[in-house]
Simulated scan of single mutants.
Amino acid sequence: MRAPGLPGSGPYDDPTLGLGLPEPEGVARVESWSRPAGQDGRSADGYGEMIARLRGFLDYVAAARLDAGTVAALSDDLGAWSERLADLAVSEREQVFGHRDDMPGRGQTMAPALRVHEADRFSVRGTVRFGRYFLGGNGAVHGGAVPLLFDEVLGRLSGSGGRSRARTAYLHTDYRSITPIGAELDVHGWFVSEEGRKRVLRAEIRHNGVLCAEAEGLFVTLKPGQP
């Protein structure tokens, strides 16, 4: 008997494992999680579309078996773009990547983009898809990518609703079943307690109701002047 979510068990027989899935749409304003980008969810400056293409590019690079000519051409193109972007580098405070609250995932590609459905100061619910770029093997998300998503979700929730910034003190993750690539997954994060500078939060990822992974994180607020 095959484990759920592995190739040969039905929905994951597709060898491309979720390649070409549509990007998450823009989300309505939900507390401090997002600001509307526009009625169609697109960013006026095109940044969201560029990030969506970058996510897709990473998925296809991960899935492709490249010949020597393609490797050389791609390497040259990436080198040319690196040189072009080097002249546009700015300080961290001016950085756009990962700082766009008007689009899913804050406009970054380090972690898959969470599409928020409902949120307040104490909890958040949404959906996410891990693309081929996050494949660990045999149709499953890489084990290191799961806590990355948890840290993204809980870190943002910890600082939502006008709260002061905090750093992750620990993040404990338990893997309960396969987290499949390319599938729509339900994500839920919530506050457990807050005392002094310490905030304890928990989160879980489910696929069709089955618990894939759960985590508990401790976040400690920064003292004045702490980076």
Rank of each mutant, 00 (worst) to 15 (best):
Arg2Asn: 13
Ala3Trp: 09
Gly5Arg: 05
Ser9Lys: 07
Pro11His: 06
Pro11Asp: 12
Tyr12Lys: 06
Asp13Met: 13
Leu17Asn: 13
Leu17His: 15
Glu23Val: 04
Pro24His: 04
Val27Asn: 06
Trp33Ala: 07
Trp33Thr: 03
Trp33Lys: 03
Asp40Gly: 04
Arg42Trp: 01
Ala44Glu: 12
Ala44Val: 09
Asp45Val: 01
Tyr47Cys: 05
Tyr47Asn: 04
Gly48Leu: 04
Met50Glu: 07
Leu54Trp: 11
Gly56Phe: 00
Asp59Gly: 00
Tyr60Pro: 00
Asp67Gly: 14
Ala68Val: 02
Gly69Ala: 05
Asp76Ile: 06
Asp77Trp: 04
Leu78Glu: 00
Ala80Ile: 01
Leu85Ala: 11
Ala86Met: 01
Asp87Ile: 11
Ser91Gly: 15
Glu92Asp: 14
Gly98Cys: 03
His99Asn: 13
His99Leu: 09
Gly105Arg: 06
Arg106Asp: 10
Gly107Ser: 01
Gln108Val: 01
Gln108Glu: 15
Leu114Phe: 12
Val116Gln: 03
Val116Met: 07
Asp120Phe: 04
Val124Pro: 06
Gly126Met: 01
Thr127Cys: 09
Val128Gly: 07
Val128Phe: 11
Gly137Ala: 12
Gly139Leu: 14
Val141Arg: 02
Val141Thr: 09
Leu148Phe: 11
Phe150Arg: 03
Asp151Arg: 07
Glu152Ile: 05
Arg156Thr: 15
Leu157Gln: 04
Ser158Thr: 15
Arg167Gln: 13
Arg167Leu: 15
Arg176Ala: 14
Arg176Ser: 13
Ser177Tyr: 12
Val187Thr: 04
Glu194Val: 05
Arg197Ala: 14
Arg199Val: 02
Ala203Trp: 08
Ile205Trp: 12
Glu214Ile: 02
Thr221Glu: 13
Lys223Ser: 14
